[in-house]
């Protein structure tokens, strides 16, 4: 073992440990795991398969596969960051961790990896349900694309969650996150296509970051509204960077 790899291993170890304990911590929080993992699948089976699957050549099953994926990963990222960050901040864990020999970014990286891991699990569960019960048939590249969108799509919502987490208290955080999460999902057409809602919803949908992510996912299954892909990516990138910057500033101020 030469010095370089030892060095790298040594540097990575705190990140890996942090991620591992974050995962164990979340896994032992049923109030997070159950809604985050089960709700998207449950809703999908209910609305995409049971209520909409047999009719209309699987259009509902296909559309909702894309949008419930976004819905699911958005939840895992917002809760994973928003609520845990608020709680840990309130309990003084962050201050405590500063005293530990842990790189300052490890906490955030760990939370991010967790959100992506949960996103991957949600994405797989939905894919299995869609292919088996929903009768959705996609090309291998389309399945892979959806998976990638779901995993990387957590980033903007991690940033938004972090920003919420550093602003609100632990008790209030689940309520605040839900207050943002659920209306945003609905208004972005994640539960039902915007086309069946009044036109004003379609007009205002681009206000919601989740709309842009869902449009990318829908583009993969060929059900998007035809907007510019570059614009969707651009919005998500700006949202990610901006919320992250704002959260870091706040974190540095209040700790």
């Amino acid at each position: 073992m030469n010095a370089t790899t030892f060095d790298a291993g040594f540097r990575l170890r705190p990140y890996l440990l942090e991620a591992k304990y974050e995962f164990l911590g979340l896994l032992r929080t049923p109030s997070y795991v159950l809604p985050a993992l089960l709700f998207p699948s449950l809703f999908y089976v209910l609305f995409g398969v049971l209520l909409g699957g047999g009719r209309g050549g699987g259009e509902a099953a296909r559309y909702l596969l894309a949008t419930y994926g976004v819905f699911g990963i958005m939840g895992s990222a917002l809760f994973g960051f928003g609520v845990t960050m608020a709680l840990e901040r309130e309990r003084g864990l962050l201050v405590f961790k500063r005293a530990l020999p842990v790189p300052p970014g490890a906490v955030l990286v760990a939370k991010m990896v967790m959100a992506m891991l949960f996103a991957a699990i949600i994405s797989m569960m939905l894919a299995v349900l869609a292919a088996s019960l929903g009768g959705v048939r996609l090309a291998p590249l389309q399945w892979a694309g959806l998976f990638l969108v779901n995993v990387l799509g957590t980033l903007p919502f991690c940033a938004i969650g972090l920003w919420i987490g550093v602003h609100v208290g632990g008790q209030a955080s689940p309520a605040i996150v839900n207050l943002i999460y659920l209306p945003m999902a609905f208004l972005s057409g994640l539960w039902m296509p915007l086309s069946i809602l009044p036109a004003i919803f379609t007009k205002l949908a681009p206000v919601w970051p989740s709309f842009h992510l869902s449009q990318i996912a829908l583009r993969i299954v060929g059900r998007d509204a035809g907007g510019s892909l570059a614009m969707h990516f651009g919005v998500l990138a700006v949202v990610t960077v901006a919320f992250f910057v704002m959260a870091r500033r706040r974190l540095a101020d209040v700790g």
Binding site: V207, M231, V238, A242, V245, M246
Partner: peptide, 16 residues
Amino acid sequence: AGLSVVAVLAIAVVMQ
């Protein structure tokens, strides 16, 4: 950062 979020979302609405 906050203004850039508002700006980009406004542009998204207009572009649509």
